[in-house]
Simulated scan of single mutants.
Amino acid sequence: MASADVPIPYCGLPPAPDTLWSRWNLDPILIACLLVCAAAYAFGNAKAARAGQHMPLWRQATFYLGWIIAAAALISPLCPLSVSLFAARVGQHMILTLIAAPLVAAGRPFALAASLWHRSMTRQTAIAPLCASAMFAALIWFWHAPAPYAETFRSTLVYWSMHVTVFGAALWLWTSLIDASPAQAGRVVVAGLISTVQMGFLGALITFAPRPLYTPHLLTTVAWGLTPLQDQQLGGAIMWVPGCIIFFIISMLILWNDIVRAELIPAKAVSR
């Protein structure tokens, strides 16, 4: 039981293994925000279509799929499990930044919003991928430092500051990679490699740390058959190995697409 002077984390008290699947996060404010954002995207697409700026159906589908995955990461029992296990919190972050964010970004929500506000839809600046990767790296390292991480368990505002800034930076990064022109292929590769290397390095540091670093989990891992250090090592490995692989593969696919487009455009110009 939590004492009166110890705040309860946003996702609640640490769950027992036999009660985990009954611990869904049905926060009405969160659910309302998720539904409003999805509805705004649908409304924006409908309005853009009436103006002759129809978004391809496959892009709309990727947005909704990514948004559903993001919602599942925040609403499902993964939320309370992240109170018990550092590995679960890292897994939640990887789902949000490496699976949900690129899918949402492929739906081009920022470009859609720009068109609705009658802003120019010109391409991003040349250094956008590098700036986005630097911002993403800074936030990943900051929020996985022991002190800021521990603060997310004491304050709901800090908890959501972590999630919103990390997911927002991931959206900016993936948007800058996906929407890059063929001429920016080199910067896309550098930005992807920076993101891959920094996540791998941080994951390795966490994995090989000689002692537990994250105090909120010192007393919550035993119920799951793990020591705090084992839990930390598992979390570091999740960030290090799958995180690096997913980021590298998606970055290379984006690069390959840019190369193909760069080769096809001159060929079409010559044929005309």
Rank of each mutant, 00 (worst) to 15 (best):
D27W: 04
G203Q: 10
P242N: 09
W58E: 07
L103M: 14
T152A: 12
A185C: 08
S3E: 13
R211G: 03
A134Y: 02
S155Y: 04
A72K: 01
T62M: 11
A137C: 13
G225Q: 10
A70W: 01
F142E: 03
G107N: 04
A170P: 02
L193N: 12
V104Q: 04
R211V: 11
D27R: 04
T19K: 15
T125H: 09
L85M: 07
E263T: 09
L98Q: 12
V83A: 08
C33F: 10
V164E: 00
L30V: 12
E151G: 00
A51K: 09
R272D: 09
T220D: 03
T156C: 02
A126C: 00
P109Q: 02
P102N: 07
T165C: 05
F167A: 04
L255I: 06
P7D: 08
W240C: 09
A137Y: 03
D179Y: 05
P228N: 13
A137D: 06
A267L: 14
V189E: 04
R272H: 12
S161H: 03
L202G: 08
I249A: 14
G192Y: 06
G107W: 02
I194L: 15
F110W: 12
W224V: 07
I127V: 11
P15D: 10
S84R: 03
W24F: 13
R272A: 13
L139E: 05
F86N: 07
L34A: 11
L157G: 12
F153C: 03
I127L: 14
V222W: 05
Q92R: 06
V241E: 10
A185T: 15
I206N: 07
N257A: 15
R187D: 05
R123H: 14
P7T: 05
S120T: 12
F248P: 02
F63V: 00
T175Q: 10
Y214D: 07
M1H: 10
I178T: 07
P129C: 04
A223C: 04
W240P: 02
Y10V: 05
I245E: 06
R89A: 13
R23E: 14
F167G: 00
L57R: 14
A2W: 03
F136T: 04
A269F: 02
A269Q: 09
S161Q: 09
A128H: 07
A4F: 04
F247T: 12
S161T: 11
S120H: 07
M239L: 15
Y10R: 05
W24V: 04
A16L: 15
G235Q: 13
W143V: 01
L20I: 06
T220Q: 05
A49D: 15
